[in-house]
Design a protein around this nucleic acid. Structure first.
Lengths: 232, 232
DNA sequence: TAAGTTCTAAAGGTGTGATGTTTGGTTCTG
DNA sequence: CAGAACCAAACATCACACCTTTAGAACTTA
């Protein structure tokens, strides 16, 4: 039953492919596709083509119009906070731009998240944060970069979740992406700076002490470093 | 061809209804629906039922599993930043909780956005911001609350867009929602405080002056007010 | 010539029946 | 009792028919 003429492809793969193409600019805003063309191209039935389109449509990448077809939407209407769109942008030609925007978002959210975490953290979370800060220091000073980043990600995720704001928590994956991407984008020294280690410590202690103001202050230090790295 | 037994309902209305129900907790995490049950309930064909499900699926509210059906996802997996989900949450029983989270997000993003706008604004945007700040003062002092809020929304939207970060710009609608919702949630005095007017002025001037540090400082003033209102 | 009207065909929307595919459960067997 | 074999449920996909909307062409008319 293999289709020899066309690379037969699963349902998700189609929206995945099209999503990447649109975000990548392969189809300009206003460009028109048709279900028929998708059926041809991917060798699938109308049902599957429509399913894929539905996904893209609900992320705002296109909309379908009778008698016209599938109209690609301008970037300003994309659901740019959705994990799928973020992933597509990070895989696009403008990955760097996306990365910078994500970093700016992270910077914005994390100072507030630190303060929130200080106000809301549980006892267990407080201990975990202190532990992670200590781990980061140890790994950072012995230059075990991979393990360091893992701990760093866990630290930030925990902090974002401890604040009790689900929208902040939802950014944990984004932050993880940004943190592990920093090395590729030359935004990270091979050896974590002592100031950064101190600041992580400070944040953890402030959160444990339930001191939002202090937590914010230390997080500002971290974030300032990232900002200046961004401006190079 | 009207279906008399069941209230026949359009395609979008179904995902809308189900989305609200799930977000509202009417279907717990792990609950299972079937396409068949949706067809029955809404009096639609499989095609339409599947379309609706696809939308919910791409926002992470459920996933479909063979031999099982449509499984409602835990809240932590929802695409909580997507405009649809935000709207559903704001229409749910926990609207207040959603509103608070959105406000926290707004607070987080806007300080950073002010600084970004100062760095990136065009000449035209600088003038518009100054104008809007002046308009807000006039309307605020004459207690024209409705018009004031309109100007307020325009001000914040412009600022968010001026920074050039598409993720910040995407929050403009959310911020608009929060700003106009403040009155309903008792987070806003009937007469804008003079300090708030001054701060808006300050932000506008700093952005016009391309002074990120100052823009951030004034925005902090605004945001501090909102924070304290939130803590009551 | 310009403006309005009618018509038509293109493209998505919806409905249905048949068939494929996965997979949780059940039953059978050694 | 463990594991293999089997079954049936529910979604996945396909094919096809028909409905609905609507951009644009053709046509009319002032």
């Amino acid at each position: 039953m293999a289709n020899s003429a066309v690379a037969r492809v699963g349902r998700d793969a189609i929206s995945e492919t099209l999503g990447r193409e649109i975000v990548d600019g392969a189809h300009r805003s206003g460009a028109v596709l048709t279900l028929e063309s998708l059926q041809q191209r991917f060798g699938v039935s109308r049902t599957v083509a429509r399913d894929s389109v539905k996904v893209l449509e609900s992320h705002g990448l296109l909309y379908s119009k009778r008698r016209i077809g599938l109209v690609v939407t301008a970037a300003k209407h994309w659901d740019v906070m959705s994990p799928s769109v973020i992933a597509w942008r990070l895989a696009s030609a403008d990955a760097r731009g996306a990365f910078i925007e994500l970093t700016q978002l992270r910077i914005a959210v994390e100072t507030e998240a630190a303060a929130l975490a200080a106000a809301r953290r549980t006892e267990v979370q407080a201990h975990q944060m202190l532990d992670l800060a200590a781990t980061m220091r140890r790994l950072g000073e012995s230059e075990q970069l991979t393990e360091f980043i893992t701990a760093d990600i866990a630290f930030h995720r925990l902090m974002l979740e401890a604040g009790g704001n689900s929208m902040f928590a939802a950014l944990a994956d984004v932050v993880a992406e940004v943190l592990s991407g920093r090395t590729q984008h030359g935004l990270m020294p091979t050896r974590p700076m002592p100031e950064a280690l101190d600041a992580h410590d400070g944040v953890a202690r402030a959160i444990a002490d339930q001191d939002p103001r202090e937590a914010r202050r230390y997080m500002e230090v971290l974030v300032d470093e990232v900002r200046s790295a961004l401006e190079e």
